[in-house]
Design a protein around this nucleic acid. Structure first.
Lengths: 207, 187
DNA sequence: GCTTTAAAAAGTAAGCT
DNA sequence: AGCTTACTTTTGAAAGC
């Protein structure tokens, strides 16, 4: 019986040690990305749920932690791309992506794809654009969604294009290069998306 | 030019099949005696053979098993296997008259003829059997249980059906998707 | 899980002129 | 800006790490 006790204590220690490591990893990554406390707490809940359902088997703690953080950002409407999560993790984007799909399915997270609108506040503040420009970008994206101009397109690219357009309409022009930089897409993508949005939403852009 | 009949737009794009043509093969000598052979044991355990007539690529293993990929019809697949068998016979290897083969996967393309809203489809299915991550890939992934295939749906209304064993699997998948989308009022 | 083959879909990316 | 090449996703078998 003493053996059994010791074993339980050993397992318990390992479990606690792993959980502590996971939580410190979540905190480290969240800090590096400047994420608010509610996102860290949400990520911790997702991670604990994954542990309770034995979803860590065969997966690295760091991989599950990164996937949990990615999911938490989306749940809290402050999305980070897989590339951004991967930058502060030692796990590859590919591994985080597959782990995310796995825990998302197993925990029944049912997350709809990220809306381009959720990227607007972060990208606009990164470009020092005022609320008015931000609101106009959101309105453009709302219309774009209804007109099926977002199906299959990357959310960050569409958001970047809408911000590029609204910055011009609002008289606070940002270059494609500047917008591309904060959005993490190429200028070519912004060009393709903004031309499509301007044409189909009948927005006149005078440079 | 465009018939716009979804069920008439089906086109087989690729067929993967496996077969056992003999009990064992000496890959090093086989690779050196066949002109279009490629063999790097360090890189991959099989010999890669490329045919031009039916444009097919064959992977030949030391066990005598073979994998054929690239065929766009069951007929060209059979011809490809015959050509491979003849090439091996020319090397003095005994190969059965009509080697048995099994189709492992058929990739088919199709067109619903109308653009579709992937976001609404994802919501309509309540994300059941569906994966849609436009940040990563523009297509919506839909896994069907019957027929057991995976369908990639695009905003243009075009789609890819893969994982089927017989041509009819793709046909049934398209019919099922058409009825599900229409009953959900998404097409 | 990876390696290799082929193929389509549509978006994004990178290199070169 | 535009063209080319290439990578993302899915599927399946083969032998071996």
């Amino acid at each position: 019986r003493l053996r059994k006790w010791q074993r339980r204590i050993r397992v318990s220690n390992a479990t606690e040690r792993n959980l502590a490591f996971a939580l410190s990893e979540l905190d480290r990554m969240a800090s590096a990305l400047g994420l608010p406390r509610n996102v860290r707490e949400t990520a911790a809940v997702v991670y604990r749920d994954a542990v309770d359902k034995n979803l860590i088997r065969g997966r690295s703690i760091e991989g599950v932690a990164a996937a949990a953080l990615y999911a938490a950002c989306r749940q809290c409407s402050v999305p980070r791309t897989l590339d951004e999560i991967a930058e502060v993790s030692r796990v590859s984007r590919k591994e985080i992506g597959r782990t995310y799909r796995f825990i998302s399915r197993e925990l029944g997270l049912k997350l709809l794809p990220t809306s381009p609108i959720d990227y607007v506040p972060r990208f606009c503040s990164g470009l020092n654009l005022k609320g008015e420009v931000q609101s106009r970008a959101v309105e453009i994206l709302r219309q774009a969604g209804e007109r099926e101009l977002t199906s299959g397109r990357g959310p960050t690219g569409v958001a970047a294009a809408a911000i590029y357009i609204s910055s011009i309409l609002g008289g606070e022009r940002r270059t494609q290069r500047e917008v591309a930089e904060v959005a993490g897409v190429t200028e070519v993508t912004i060009r393709n998306r903004y031309k499509e949005l301007a044409e189909k939403l009948d927005i006149e852009i005078i440079l | 030019m465009n018939e716009h009949r979804p069920e008439e737009s089906l086109k087989i794009e690729n067929i993967v099949a496996s077969a056992k043509v003999t009990d064992s093969l000496d890959l090093p000598s086989l690779a050196s005696r066949l002109k279009d052979a490629e063999y790097n044991k360090k890189r991959f355990p099989g010999v890669v053979l490329r045919m031009q007539d039916p444009k097919i690529a064959a992977l030949v293993f030391g066990s005598g098993k073979v994998v054929l990929t690239g065929a766009k019809s069951i007929d060209s697949l059979s011809r490809g296997l015959q050509i491979l068998a003849d090439q091996l016979r020319a090397l003095g290897i005994d190969i059965p008259e009509n080697p048995e083969y099994k189709i492992q996967n058929i990739v088919t393309s199709a067109d619903l003829g109308t653009p579709i809203n992937l976001n609404k489809i994802a919501v309509g299915f309540n994300l059941d059997k569906i994966e849609y991550e436009p940040e990563q890939f523009p297509g919506l992934v839909y896994r069907l249980d019957d027929p057991k295939v995976v369908v990639l749906l695009f905003g243009s209304g075009k789609l890819i059906i893969t994982g089927g064993k017989v041509p009819e699997d793709a046909q049934r998948a398209v019919q099922r998707i058409l009825s599900e989308l229409s009953s959900l009022g998404l097409i």
